[in-house]
Simulated assay, not measured.
Amino acid sequence: MIKIIYSILCCLFFISCTKEYYFQPGEVWPDNHGVHINAHGGGILYDNGVYYWFGEHKVEGSIGNTAQVGVHCYSSTDLYKWKDEGIALSVAPEGSGSDIEKGCVLERPKVIYNANTRKYIMWFHLEPKGMGYSGAKSGVAVSEKPTGPYQFIHSFRPNAGHWPMNVLDIHITRPVPSSGEQFSGGSLPAPPDSLNLLGRDMKGGQMARDMNLFVDDDGKAYHIYSSEENSTLHISLLSDDYTRYVGKYKRLFVGRHMEAAAMFKRKGKYYLIMSGCTGWEPNAARSAVADAPFGEWKELGNPCKGKDAEWTFYSQSCYVLPVQGCNDCYIYMGDRWCPKNPIDGRYVWLPIQFEGDSFIIEWKDRWSLETL
Rank of each mutant, 00 (worst) to 15 (best):
G185R: 01
S184I: 05
S179T: 14
P192V: 10
S155I: 00
M207G: 06
D216F: 10
D193C: 08
G185Q: 05
D169N: 14
M202K: 06
H162I: 02
A208H: 04
L198E: 03
Q182K: 15
H171L: 07
G204Y: 12
D216P: 04
P191G: 01
M207N: 11
V176A: 06
H223R: 13
F156Q: 10
L197E: 00
G205W: 00
G161L: 04
N166Q: 09
S194L: 12
F214K: 09
T173I: 12
R209M: 04
V176K: 01
N166E: 07
M165K: 15
P191V: 08
A208N: 07
D218H: 05
K220W: 11
D169H: 11
P175N: 04
G161S: 07
S179K: 15
K203F: 10
N159G: 01
D201P: 04
P192E: 06
S184T: 08
D169M: 14
L168D: 11
R174I: 01
A190S: 14
G185Y: 06
V215I: 13
W163T: 01
N212G: 15
P191R: 08
R209G: 00
I170L: 10
G180P: 03
F156T: 08
I172Q: 15
L195P: 00
L188C: 08
A221N: 08
H223D: 09
G186V: 06
L195V: 01
A221H: 10
N159M: 05
D193E: 11
P177G: 07
M207W: 14
H171K: 04
W163M: 03
K220P: 06
L213Q: 03
Q206F: 04
M202R: 05
M207H: 12
G219S: 09
R200N: 05
S178F: 07
D218W: 08
G186H: 13
G204H: 12
Q182E: 12
K203R: 13
P189W: 13
G204F: 12
F183T: 00
P158N: 03
H223Y: 15
G186E: 11
Q182F: 15
I224L: 15
D210E: 10
D216R: 12
V215R: 13
L213K: 01
G161R: 05
G161Q: 06
I170M: 09
G180F: 07
S187T: 13
M202L: 08
E181N: 08
L188H: 02
E181K: 12
S187Q: 14
F183L: 02
G161I: 01
